[in-house]
Amino acid sequence: MNTVKTTTGPRKRNPLAKYPYLFLAPFLVIFFIFQFLPIVFTLGISFTRWDGINPMKFIGLENYRRLIFSDTRFFLTIFNTFVILLFSLPFTVVFSLVISHLMNSRYLRFKRVFELTNFLPYITTPVAIGLLWSILFDWKYGTVNKVLVSLGLIQDPMNWLGMSSFARIVVSLIVIWKNYGYLSILLLAGMSTIPPELYEAATVDGANSRQTFFHITIPQLRPILVFVVVTSVISGLQLFDEPFMLFKGGPTGAQPYGGPGLSCLTMVMNFYDAAFQYFDMGYGASIAYGMFVVIAFFSFLSLKFSMRSEKK
C-alpha cells in the first residue's frame, strides 16, 4: 500500500509516508464535516420541492429540467456574470500588477502608506460604498452627471443605473476599484520573494526596467499570478456584493433587484433570490449546482491555460 515517495526519500517503506496525511488531516477533517456534508445534503435538496417549512417532496430531476430548458433567467445570469467579468478582470489584474510593480520599486518612498491606501476600498463598508456610488451615479443629482454636463461632454444627464449596459459598466468599475488593492497585496507578497540579486545582475547587464519587469518579475511571479488569475475568475463568477449593493431591491430599494432589465443579476444573486428571498429551496439548490458546473468548467479552463504557460 505505502508506495508513497517524497522528493528525497527512497521508494519503499518511506518513514515520511504518513506525514503528508498528518499535515492534511486538520484541513480535510474540518472541511468534510463542516463544509462538505452540508453541500452533499443540499444536493439531496435539489431533487425536491421544498419551501423550508412544508415537507419536502421528491421530484427527481424536475428542478434541473426547469433550470436548463424553461428558465431563461439562468442563462441570462450566466451572460451577465460573464460580461461583468470580462469588463473587470483584465483591468483589475493588469492594474494591480502595475501598481504592485511600482510599489516594489526601490525608488519609492512612503511604501507602507500606499500599501494601506490601495487596500482601503477593500475595507470600506459595503453599505457606505453602495450609498456613495448610488449618489455618484444618480440620474438627476449625481456628481458624475453634473461633472460631465458642465464639461459639455454630454447634453442631458445619463441614466447610469437605469440602463442595462451602463449599469453593468458601473458594477464593473466598482469591482475594479474594490479589488485591485487586494490583488496587489497578494502580488506584492509574491514579489517580495524575488531575490534582489536577480535584478542587480540584470541591471549590471544593462537591462532597463521594462525588460526586468517582463523577464524577471513576471516569470518569477508565475505561481502567484496563476493563483491570482484563477481565484479572481472563481470569485468573479461568484460575484454578488457589488451588484447587490446597488440593486438590492426590496420594499425600500431605489432600484429593482438585479438592476434594470435584470442586467446585473449575477448567478449568485439569482441563487440568493431563490433560496433566501422567495424560499424555493429545492430550485435554489439546483441553481447553485448548475452554477457550480459553469464555474468549475471555466475555472479549470483558466487553470489549465495558466498552468500551461507556467511550464515554460
Binding site: 508506495t3 508513497v4 515517495k5 517524497t6 522528493t7 515520511l16 509516508a17 506525514y19 503528508p20 496525511y21 499535515f23 492534511l24 484541513f27 480535510l28 472541511f31 463542516f34 463544509q35 462538505f36 456534508l37 452540508p38 453541500i39 445534503f41 443540499t42 435538496i45 423550508g52 484563477v230 481565484t231 472563481i234 463568477l237 461568484q238 449568485v268 441563487f271 440568493y272 433560496a275 433566501f276 429551496m281 439548490a285 447553485a288 452554477m291 457550480f292 464555474i295 468549475a296 475555472s299 487553470l303
Partner: peptide
C-alpha cells in the same frame, strides 16, 4: 513538499471546493 497517493486528485478537489458558492449549504449547515 511531499509526493503522495492521489495528491493531484486531492488538490483538484480542494480547488473545486472554492467554486461552490459559500451560502449553498447553509440550511443543512
Amino acid at each position: 513538499i511531499y509526493t503522495f497517493r492521489l495528491k493531484k486528485a486531492v488538490f483538484n478537489f480542494v480547488l473545486a471546493t472554492m467554486m461552490i458558492p459559500t451560502q449553498l449549504g447553509l440550511i443543512a449547515f
